[in-house]
């Protein structure tokens, strides 16, 4: 009699994550969602000011060719104590560059638990879920959750308004010359 071949336990589905801090609070993001990590200082020359009504978390925009990346202050987004971020995460497939305090470490999560349904406000857009790591619970952020389509529309409008003003200023200068 042949015994059935032992069933191999399938390895738990894991995901590489980056643990980072904003205003002292720990968060996680999938490392595959982070396209670039830059120091905030290195971006200071390239970024231009932007001001959209009612959207205080975005003050700067980075132009990359015909693409604009909005720099979101993580502390303001989450309603934490305002802090000057030291690093920027350029988030893949989004128009967001997230300003954070710093990276804690890279690690692996084996289980992402859905955000309990009791959490029923903006946080449902902010987080993909929660994960338990070393006896602590860390929210895993949603890269698309930092700027809603409505906020992006506001920022685009502010951007085109700023471009128009700059264009008019240049025209005024050249005609004066």
């Amino acid at each position: 009699m042949r015994l059935a071949a032992p069933v191999k336990a399938s390895p738990a589905k894991t995901e590489q994550i980056i643990l980072f801090r904003v205003s002292g609070q720990l968060f996680a993001v999938s490392s595959s969602s982070v396209q670039e990590v830059r120091s905030a200082d290195s971006m200071s020359g390239a970024a231009t000011n932007i001001s959209a009504p009612g959207l205080r978390k975005v003050r700067h925009v980075l132009r990359r060719g015909d693409r604009s990346l909005f720099i979101v202050n993580g502390a303001m987004h989450f309603g934490l104590h305002a802090a000057e971020g030291a690093l920027l995460f350029v988030l893949r497939k989004t128009r967001t560059a997230l300003m954070i305090d710093g990276i804690e470490k890279m690690t692996t999560m084996t289980r992402l638990q859905a955000l309990p349904l009791s959490f029923c406000h903006e946080e449902r857009q902010w987080y993909r879920g929660l994960t338990a790591l070393d006896q602590t619970v860390v929210p895993v952020v949603h890269p698309e959750g930092f700027l809603s389509p409505a906020e992006l529309a506001l920022l685009d409008a502010a951007l085109s308004e700023a471009d128009k003003t700059t264009g008019e200023d240049l025209e005024g200068t050249s005609s004066a010359e």
Partner: peptide
């Protein structure tokens, strides 16, 4: 109690219980 930013009133955070995350 593990606390993280959110906007839902009355919720303090979550606890870990038997591997589950409970608000």
């Amino acid at each position: 109690v593990f606390r993280f930013p959110h906007r839902t009133p009355k919720l303090e955070g979550v606890i870990l219980r038997r591997g589950r995350i409970v608000p």
